[in-house]
Design a protein around this nucleic acid. Sequence first.
DNA 1: CATAAGCTTAGACTTTATCTAAGCTTTGAT
DNA 2: ATCAAAGCTTAGATAAAGTCTAAGCTTATG
Lengths: 143, 143
Amino acid sequence: MKRLATQDVTDLIRARGLKLTPQRLAIVEYLQACSGHPTAEDVWKAVNAKFPMASRATVYNTLNWLRESELLSEIQQDGVARFDPNLDPHHHFVCRACGRVEDVDYDAVAPWPQCTLPDRHVIEGFDLTLRGLCANCAAVAAS
Amino acid sequence: MKRLATQDVTDLIRARGLKLTPQRLAIVEYLQACSGHPTAEDVWKAVNAKFPMASRATVYNTLNWLRESELLSEIQQDGVARFDPNLDPHHHFVCRACGRVEDVDYDAVAPWPQCTLPDRHVIEGFDLTLRGLCANCAAVAAS
DNA sequence: CATAAGCTTAGACTTTATCTAAGCTTTGAT
DNA sequence: ATCAAAGCTTAGATAAAGTCTAAGCTTATG
């Protein structure tokens, strides 16, 4: 199970001549430890616990840079950006009742079938988002 | 090929005791005629051609109400909301080079395979977004 | 330990979308 | 056709999310 790792971040920082600041480390550590898919605001609040002076700009800069380096991916839920430190290829399940986003293992869905797109499209990847009721909300709805 | 239709809108307006205003009609007509996936801003500009006084609030109210009535669906592209008047079930293809979003016929993708989700999730639907290069951009890249 | 490059901060700014109060339009009844 | 009630539209204020900037500070390196 591959996930955002401090080692990968420090390697990348060295390779690109960037600086390893405590704020960046705090952001990475929070993302490593969190379950689920925090918003930029969530990350900012968590970092503020350690660095009350931390600016939103620092959080956004770091999140964007991690995303561009493909150490983090971004998903959209109701128009709000959320960040996903799970680097294994996976899908998402969004519960329409509680709004929670769960990761769905790549192998929980049978192998991807043939696509016959018109013209000469080059397909490089895809996102799959399943929608419905999560186990909790389905149980509540049934009772 | 099912698509947002004036008749459906007027029926719904009557059924719910709402008012059929020229502004709403202009919005619906633009959405019917447009190709692609306009943003709220695009819709506002188009409506302004006929009603220079039209407020953004009217446009947003109408788009939200059409969406809630499932006469229109909303997609997110780079964190920007876009509206999709195509009511046939379909997927999307996003070109990484030009950013354009194309509709992909439901049947262009082979029938949906089995999902074995953990627990008792209730799957009601799914979104599939293919990513890569569109025919144009692939041709440019190859040359 | 000094330097250069890069980073962080606070706050202004931008964009996208929603809310509000006042006046206007549509609808249905007369 | 006319009127009242309900609902709609408008302009502008407000909110939320994210980006940008200038100044000073921190990190990495020799």
